[in-house]
Structures are given as structure tokens and as C-alpha cells.
Amino acid sequence: MDNTYITYSGSTVLNTRGDYVRIDGPLVWIEWTAQGGIVFSASHSHSVWRDKTSDYGGN
């Protein structure tokens, strides 16, 4: 957990378009955001996570 950081923008409820959270640590990177879309106009979530030790040929 050392050197792991959490940051966010928008509301703390995390259900409003534009809300964003990032967890960034030595081994993992996680992002989540509430976005609107073309097909689904209501806010819905998008997320991505990466294992920094093995994704994309990690060292």
C-alpha cells in the first residue's frame, strides 16, 4: 500500500457525469469514470485496470 495514491474529481457520490476516480500504486493502476454516451444518454460507468508488473510486457 506504500506509494499508492487515490485521487478523484467531481462529486463524491460517483454517479454524476464527469465523476472520476484513479487508484495508482506500484503494482496496479485503476481508473473509473461516469460518462454519458451517444447510445446511452444517461450516465454510466467506464473503467480500466492494469497490472503494472505484467501488462504490456511489464518488467
Rank of each mutant, 00 (worst) to 15 (best):
D19I: 03
G57D: 02
S47H: 06
Q35R: 02
G58H: 04
T16L: 02
P26D: 05
P26T: 01
I38G: 10
F40E: 09
I30N: 12
N15D: 06
T7F: 14
W29Y: 13
F40S: 01
H46K: 03
Q35Y: 02
S54T: 08
G37K: 01
Y20G: 04
S41E: 12
R50T: 11
Q35D: 05
N15F: 02
V39P: 00
K52D: 05
S9E: 11
Y5D: 14
T33P: 04
Y8I: 10
S47Y: 11
H44D: 06
A34S: 03
W32H: 09
D19L: 02
Y20H: 14
N59K: 10
G10A: 03
V28H: 09
I6L: 15
G36K: 01
E31G: 04
N59L: 13
N15A: 02
S43A: 14
T4E: 14
D2C: 10
W32F: 14
G18H: 03
D51Q: 04
S9I: 05
Y8R: 13
I38K: 11
S45K: 00
R22C: 08
V13P: 02
S9Y: 06
S45T: 00
Y20K: 11
Y5A: 15
S47F: 11
V39N: 09
S11D: 15
D55V: 02
G18W: 03
V48C: 12
N15R: 00
D2G: 08
S47D: 12
S11E: 15
D24Q: 10
R50P: 12
S47N: 08
N15Q: 04
S9D: 09
D51H: 05
L14A: 06
S45E: 13
Q35T: 02
Y20M: 12
D2M: 09
F40M: 06
D2Y: 09
S45V: 07
G10N: 02
P26Q: 01
S41W: 08
A42Q: 00
I38E: 14
M1K: 07
Y20F: 15
I30L: 15
T12R: 11
D24S: 13
L14Y: 08
S41K: 05
D24W: 08
W32L: 14
V39I: 10
E31V: 03
D2R: 06
H44S: 08
G36N: 08
S9Q: 14
M1L: 11
E31D: 03
D2P: 07
S43D: 12
K52Y: 04
T4C: 14
M1F: 08
Y56K: 07
N15C: 03
T16V: 06
Y20V: 08
N59G: 13
T53V: 08
S11F: 10
V21D: 12
S45I: 06
S54M: 05
W29G: 09
S45F: 12
G57H: 03
G18S: 07
D19T: 03
G36Q: 01
P26K: 01
R22S: 06
G58D: 01
G58A: 03
H46A: 13
M1W: 06
A42Y: 00
I30T: 05
Y8C: 15
V28F: 09
Y56P: 07
